[in-house]
Write a protein that binds this DNA or RNA. Structure first.
Length: 363
DNA sequence: GACTCGTGGGG
DNA sequence: TCCCCAAGAGT
């Protein structure tokens, strides 16, 4: 299914390439991983940048490379250490997969990041966009990308009359067709910069855009309405009871979540969902019995806080609790530990839990 | 192919 | 306060 639009002609493609590359030369962003020859460092940046804005990534990227300066350093590190470095970035499977892939590369590629696209795509956490991003940036390989920026830019360029999600293969073809094959590295970076700095989701700066005259959305005056979006369903809101359980020595009980799934491998304060008609206190007592097999007394309220994930929202109702009887067991977690408030910083926690720790310190 | 998987910032 | 969305990938 070819697009019979203006972008069809080879002549115009060359023109679009030149316009974008010229713009990039003067207006492209200066980012820490640009002009970086080490594929390991480019790889780290690409993973951190998945679904995450540049401004958020930069400090994590700098700290990461100090802590794990080489692929081998990452491969030999502890998973807990890796997750601690990732703490706060979200989508923790990225950190787990980065670690897993580093070990795999040491074992199967002699510790050298592979250059074959097929080999790169086999690595956990790397899909087509990230593979193209790494190999074009590190080796100038002529591989297209299709991230959120490129989807938005291309959807506007051809005035795509449907949500990008419903036209993924068409957009991949267009990204591949537009790619300046001899300058893949610069071209891919340039089109992402265009999306991030001019062709933004809201209030695109079309007057500054090198593709303005070629952009069908702009020419139709519908750039602010594109790309079209899918209808979204309302997010469920769950009420959660959370326990800060203290023993007679003043230590606090924390547990490590299962390796897979939401916040996998991170530590947390135990608790769970409040059932309909259930009080917070009853919920906490029940959950702790079910998950850890111990008896507690639910005490005073510490804090309540709201937190939003991608697919649901929660309100945490946190109470102090007193340990009464029983040795904590790992029934629905990997590990449990009694820690002091001084030791607790060494463990990686999800954001909602770091707010609880801050509240504990403030008391 | 539809779900799952975090967090921060902007409007 | 609420919604949107960002250098996507795994299941």
């Amino acid at each position: 299914m070819t697009d019979k639009s203006a972008t069809e002609s080879e002549l115009e493609i060359v023109s679009l390439q030149q316009l974008l590359l010229d713009w990039y030369q003067t207006q492209g962003r200066d980012l820490p991983w640009r002009n970086e020859p080490d594929p390991y460092k480019i790889w780290v940046s690409e993973i951190m940048l998945q679904q995450t804005q540049v401004k958020t990534v930069i400090p994590y990227y700098q700290r990461w490379l100090k802590q794990f300066p080489t692929l081998n350093a990452l491969a030999t590190a502890d998973l807990q250490e890796v997750l601690k470095a990732w703490e706060g970035l979200g989508y923790y499977a990225r950190g787990r997969n980065l670690h897993k892939a580093a070990k795999y590369i040491v074992r199967h590629h002699d510790g050298v990041f592979p250059t074959q696209p097929e080999a790169v795509l086999k690595l956990p956490g790397i899909g087509r966009t990230t593979a193209g991003g790494i190999l074009s940036a590190a080796f100038n390989q002529p591989l297209p990308i299709l991230d959120g920026n490129v989807k938005r830019v291309l959807a506007r360029l051809i005035a795509l009359p449907k949500p990008p999600k419903q036209a993924v293969s068409q957009l991949w073809e267009l990204s591949e067709r537009l790619l300046a094959r001899d300058r893949a590295k610069d071209f891919n970076q340039a089109i992402m910069d265009l999306g991030a700095t001019l062709c933004t989701p809201k209030n695109p700066a079309c007057l500054l855009c090198p593709w303005q005259q070629h952009c069908q959305a702009y020419n139709k005056g519908i750039q602010s309405q594109l790309p079209m979006k899918e209808p979204s369903s309302p997010l469920p809101h769950k009420q959660i009871g959370v326990a800060v359980i203290r023993n007679t020595q003043g230590q606090i009980l924390i547990d490590r979540r299962l390796e897979e799934g939401l916040l996998g491998g991170l530590w947390e304060f135990p608790g769970g969902k409040i059932e309909p008609g259930e009080t917070v206190q009853a919920c906490i007592k029940r959950e702790i019995k079910e998950e850890l097999g111990i008896e507690i007394e639910v005490g005073e309220h510490l804090i309540s806080l709201d937190h939003a994930y991608t697919h649901f929202r929660i309100t945490l109702h946190v109470h102090y609790c007193r340990h009464l009887a029983g040795e904590p067991q790992t029934i629905e977690c990997q590990e449990v530990r009694w820690v002091t408030l001084e030791e607790i910083d060494r463990y990686p926690f999800p954001k909602a839990n770091t707010k609880i720790i801050a509240a504990l310190r403030a008391r």
